[in-house]
Computed example of a mutant assay.
Amino acid sequence: MQQITVDGTTVPALGFGTSGMDTDDERYRAVSAALDAGYRHVDTAQMYESESAVGDAMGDSGIDREEVFVTTKLLGENRAHDAVIESTRDSLDRLDTEYVDLLLIHSPDQEVAHEETLDAMNELVEEGTVENIGVSNFSVEETRAAIEHSDAPILTNQVEYNVHERRDDLLSLCLDEDVMLTAYSPLGVGDCLDNEVVTGIADDHDKTAAQVAIRWLLQQPLVSPIPMSSNPEHVRANADVFDFELTDDEMRDLFAIGGDLDDDLAGKLGL
């Protein structure tokens, strides 16, 4: 499995998302299928109500805890200092683990100042129950402010990112600051799969459109896609993306779907 190294922390580049599933049984089966398919990076959140299923699936998988990189996120109402501490301990109980690899602020649109939340998250890093911290859905300015305030490095900003939904300014900042960009909805809730450019490149490589869309993300430095599916066949297919490579021309064609690529960012991407 391809890895991303951020400030000395190694993260499996391809992750598995767990949002949008309706029942614990569906979540458990999906995560179990993902672990069986070779995923070793699992994304959950207090809001998704999938932490227990993730913990159960990991426990039943027989895979050593240290081999799976687990991310969870704070619910909006758990942003105040004490709520950060208490809710994270609850998350650990649900996940049946002594630590999480990554804890994120789920959304910037809350009443509690980011600084208060980050200070509490830093305390959890110091005590060892959280290995790394980050943010989600933060703007460029909010991400920069979090980097400047936090003693612990901001490992990632998790945002929607796909061929239709580009994040050029944010990606440029991440590359400059050594921050991973975690890409949720890497298939655009499926709307990337009907694009003629994507399907044409997929045909050329004898791959699916989904595999091409995921591969496009994986070939960008510091980008980690986290596709989600409860269909075991799709789960396995989305992981089968390491036996082919997109050319620079194909990468540029896929970027062009979302508009012109800034010359400065193109240079940082080697395109």
Rank of each mutant, 00 (worst) to 15 (best):
V100M: 10
L173G: 05
D168Q: 15
V235M: 12
I214C: 11
V179T: 13
L155Q: 10
L175Q: 08
L124K: 12
D191Y: 04
P108T: 01
L269S: 04
R29S: 06
E115N: 12
A239H: 14
S61A: 11
E115H: 11
L92H: 10
A120V: 07
T97Y: 02
Q2M: 14
A210Y: 09
I63Q: 04
M1E: 07
G76C: 08
L95I: 05
G259E: 11
A45S: 12
S230K: 13
A80K: 15
D90L: 10
A37T: 04
T10C: 11
G258V: 03
R166L: 13
N122E: 14
D60N: 12
T18M: 03
V84P: 01
I226M: 10
V70D: 02
V163P: 02
P232V: 09
E111R: 04
D264W: 08
V68R: 13
D22H: 14
D203N: 11
S50W: 06
I226S: 04
V70G: 02
E196D: 14
F255A: 12
D249C: 02
T23Y: 01
E115C: 09
D253W: 08
S172Q: 06
L246I: 06
P108H: 05
N137E: 10
V100G: 01
R215G: 00
E131W: 10
S224A: 14
D119E: 14
R27I: 12
L75E: 08
H164L: 14
R65L: 01
D168P: 14
E49Y: 06
S229V: 04
R89S: 08
L92R: 09
A256Y: 09
A209I: 07
M58P: 03
